[in-house]
Design a protein around this nucleic acid. Sequence first.
DNA 1: GGGCGGCTCTACAACGTTGTAGAATCAACG
DNA 2: CGTTGATTCTACAACGTTGTAGAGCCGCCC
Lengths: 340, 340
Amino acid sequence: MVTPRLKDVAALAGVSVKTVSNVINDYPFVREETRVRVQLAIDKLRYRPNLSARRLRTGRSGLIALSLPEISTPYFGEIAGLIVDVAEQRGWTVLIDQTGGERSHEQRTAAGIRADLIDGSIASPLSMTAADIAALDPHHPVVLLGEQLAMVAADHIAIDNVRAARETTEHLISLGCRRIAVIGARPRHNGTANLRLEGYRLALDDAGLRPVRSLVAPASDFHLADGYAAMQALLRTRRPPDAVFCFNDLLAFGALRAVAEAGLAVPGDIKICGFDDIELCRYSSPTLTSVSPDKRAIAETAVDLLARRITGAETGPGQDIVVPHTLEVRDSTAPAGQRR
Amino acid sequence: MVTPRLKDVAALAGVSVKTVSNVINDYPFVREETRVRVQLAIDKLRYRPNLSARRLRTGRSGLIALSLPEISTPYFGEIAGLIVDVAEQRGWTVLIDQTGGERSHEQRTAAGIRADLIDGSIASPLSMTAADIAALDPHHPVVLLGEQLAMVAADHIAIDNVRAARETTEHLISLGCRRIAVIGARPRHNGTANLRLEGYRLALDDAGLRPVRSLVAPASDFHLADGYAAMQALLRTRRPPDAVFCFNDLLAFGALRAVAEAGLAVPGDIKICGFDDIELCRYSSPTLTSVSPDKRAIAETAVDLLARRITGAETGPGQDIVVPHTLEVRDSTAPAGQRR
DNA sequence: GGGCGGCTCTACAACGTTGTAGAATCAACG
DNA sequence: CGTTGATTCTACAACGTTGTAGAGCCGCCC
């Protein structure tokens, strides 16, 4: 038994193909009786519209792409899961596009091939350049997550990174820490990492603490291995830090490992904070203090805004939307002698 | 400037639309000179075929679905990343379908809507029932990962779960453990968990150890929280285990947390093993011994086999393919007094 | 009662692609 | 020299859908 077509439904209901199409698309001028008869035929045959044909005719596919550097990163995995959920609820289907950090030529070509299959994209340009994004079809709606790209006039959704970093640093200062390091600086990229660095510096400044260059550890990537290596380097310095603010949770877990291997205790000898609040923060040893963006709000805002761009309900200039965050304080920054 | 069509290329090259199509599809009977001229026009206009139209005409979209319970689970994230990579190399695009464990009616409908957009699926039925899978279009090629579903005559790719579990248990026995618990039994499901349980029992039997019912902890799901709760329960029993074999890494991390909170040491007081070897195993405290499936082999085999099913190169009955695995021994099962 | 406008439905064309059939050319063969 | 077959290309139709234009009907108003 082949998949039913509009014409099969039309034949069964005794109307024209177009009338069936009209029922499906909620065209108002269809008699109630006709509508019911057509609907019955649709249900009976289990008819589903052919998206390729519809897209060919209307120019829309109902497909949106989610471009992420790496799906396997827990934070992106959590975000991706939420976006898929929300999109599904709204009637969109998500196609996940893994950019692989450095977009190779082949991958860019692949994106091009898919471009006319996709109505719009949600992109997290952590490792992409502005040029990469701009290279996409200019008529193609894009909503950016996390990182603001100056060159791109696209919508942009993020938490207030400066404030979040400032609050985190203040938290460490309030615990008595004075040599606070960061892991995850990315001097060459002009994105999220710099905002977090700025918040860190503002907090130090407020507290009258002098910024120490050797306490700002760069990370070429935001993986476990990078946090591990950066922490080892920090521990090897003449005066190691008494607290480390990592710019994401994986860096923090890598750092935790390095501290453990050095025979030091967290939070006793060193306090550690992460960023993103992935689920594992609540289960690591010690549990990890982390900045928690409202991920569901990010997903909902992104999908809704993109949908409005695609349908043309929203035509103004690119918006900057700020979603809330909280600082989830856990054992890795417990005051001396305490466990929460 | 609108996206170029075949006819634009044809006009520029001074040939018919069909000749351009023939060049694109490597039809052999095209003069070398014509081919070059057409190719130049394609490059000049940056022509890309419209997939919707192609799909409408050929019945193929170049899209494959990857159905996973949850993208946010690290193991599935890693597998998804690899599959997307491999598929991209082979010219396929992956659409990730998050089933959400319990497939709601809405989600099943969504799958139905997409069904005619997709050439085939790779599915990991950890939380799906056989009926769920069977409900998919029977003409729709499916490759299953991990779990064998008796009712479905589909291709199936997995490691030898019984052997892997047996080896892991033997490893624990060889370290002198005698009260070895498992976390992750799923009596009602007939899938992977049961195979791992079988391997565990075989190893106990070989060593002359009596199976103890209270040491077999079920887990309703395979999440951190489930491992945490199960471990707490095991620790509350009259004679707690001296080793725990968790059926995935998240369960193991949850268990680690419970042990830490109880003030016990791993591996000193209790040894713990995981399963899946996600990247975090190398960075947790302590690092986690885990069964490591060859994930790249899984991804490559799955994509290639599915592609052969779609193109019709493979038409035989469903195959059972076993991919290799290793046991990665780390600190969580280090012999007393040792750190690896 | 003639005309107008709203409602309901239909026929047809078009979206961009590829399969089919066949036209045109050329070389080789009997 | 006519026929055959291989090569190269083209015209046309079709995939399933929806937009456009318009036909037919009804009720209402002047």
